[in-house]
Design a binder for these strands. Structure first.
Lengths: 115, 115
DNA sequence: ACCTATTTGTCCGTATGTATG
DNA sequence: CCATACATACGGACAAATAGG
């Protein structure tokens, strides 16, 4: 896959790295079930710090696009970044809402009304 | 406010720090508009690393509980952690959904159905 | 069952940048 | 102009989970 990083760009490196993965997933360069190269390898090949790559991976995990596990690496779990993000947010939202006593029906109303 | 950290606990330090703030907000020890002590001060007083405190603050920002700004610090923006989190998620969700062509009505249906 | 290598997770330290006051 | 405070990036160290021999 294509990794693009430009140290002079206004966006942080970790965000550029995350975008590279999102782009690759979006255009089918990498597909569900595939494993991304280890953060160490990416860092070495791009000459950026290991932590910077790990941070990008964690961003993508929070978006629901990949799954991260020690010893295993980063596995792509969704085909469309946008959909994965929405699905992830819905899941989190339903969980958090229930913890303050809001069910799906109340949530639906709340969203439809516009806060 | 009360900062509790236990290096031997299973939870990460940054999560323990975030919990301390959540607790303080929940019980009214700190209120909306108040500023949390600078990450540097917290780090020094608890003898933890600056980044660990900053990470905790960033978690709380993602939850919608505080606002972070360079030079200004961390300002509490919500009275109830749970509500802030839900509101933050709703806001993000509506935004992300619209970027993939989903409006509030479709979202509401999607949430009500249960994935 | 054991050991080793791999890979992410956390924490520490340092340096520099950027926005605020 | 200068001090404050968060943001990013680099580096190193160790822990924990996984996979494979």
């Amino acid at each position: 896959m294509l990794w693009q990083v430009d140290p002079t760009a206004p966006q942080p490196l970790y965000e550029q790295l995350a975008s590279s993965v999102r782009r690759a997933v979006a255009d089918g360069t990498v597909t569900i079930g595939e494993r991304l190269p280890s953060a160490k390898d990416v860092a070495a090949s791009l000459d950026v710090n290991l932590h910077t790559v790990l941070r990008a991976y964690q961003v993508l995990r929070d978006e629901g696009l990949i799954e991260l596990r020690r010893g295993r690496g980063a596995i792509v779990t969704a085909a469309h970044p946008g959909h994965a993000r929405v699905a992830s947010l819905v899941e989190q939202l339903v969980g958090e809402a229930s913890s303050i006593g809001l069910g799906r029906a109340e949530l639906a109303k709340l969203i439809q009304k516009g806060t």
